[in-house]
Simulated scan of single mutants.
Amino acid sequence: MSIKPEIVERAEQPYVGVRGTVTMETFGKIADRMPELIGSLLQRGVELAGAPFFRYTRIDMANELEVEAGVPVNAAIPEQGEQFNGVLPAGRYVCLTHIGHPDELVDVTGQLLTWAAEQGLTWDNTGQQWGCRLEILKTNPTVEPDMTKWETELAFRLAD
Results as ranks from 00 to 15, higher is better:
D103R: 03
A69G: 14
P102C: 02
F53I: 01
C95E: 14
F84E: 00
E82K: 14
E64Y: 11
T97L: 12
L96A: 05
A62G: 13
R58S: 10
H101A: 11
G86P: 04
V106Y: 12
L65Q: 04
N74W: 13
H98L: 01
V73N: 03
I77S: 04
Y56N: 01
T97G: 05
V87G: 03
V87N: 10
R58N: 11
G81R: 13
V73S: 02
Y56V: 00
N63C: 03
F84T: 06
E82S: 12
R55S: 08
E82A: 14
T97E: 15
P78L: 00
A90Q: 15
Q83D: 01
V67D: 05
Y93H: 12
P89M: 08
V73G: 04
A90L: 10
T57G: 06
P78S: 03
G91V: 07
A75G: 01
D60Y: 00
P72Y: 08
E79S: 01
L88A: 07
V94S: 08
N63M: 08
E82T: 06
E68L: 13
V87F: 06
V67S: 07
V106C: 10
G100M: 02
V106G: 12
L96M: 05
Q83K: 15
N85L: 02
R55W: 03
P72Q: 10
V67C: 09
V73K: 07
H98I: 01
V94T: 11
P89I: 11
P102N: 09
R92F: 09
I77P: 02
E79A: 04
V87R: 15
G91K: 05
H101G: 04
H101C: 00
I59T: 08
A90I: 12
E64L: 03
Q80I: 00
L88R: 07
V71W: 01
G91W: 06
I77Y: 02
E68K: 13
L96V: 05
P89E: 08
G81A: 10
Y93E: 10
T97N: 13
T57I: 06
I99Q: 13
R92Y: 11
A69H: 07
R58M: 07
D103I: 09
A62E: 13
V71D: 01
H98W: 09
L88P: 05
E64K: 13
Q83M: 15
E104D: 15
A69L: 06
V71R: 07
E104C: 00
V67F: 08
H101K: 10
A90M: 10
A90E: 15
L65I: 04
E64R: 13
G100V: 02
G91Y: 07
R58P: 05
F84N: 03
A76L: 00
V94E: 11
R55M: 11
I59H: 06
R55T: 01
I59D: 05
R92P: 06
A62Q: 14
V71F: 04
R58L: 07
I99A: 10
F84R: 15
N74F: 14
N63Y: 11
E66F: 05
P102Y: 08
Y93Q: 11
F84A: 03
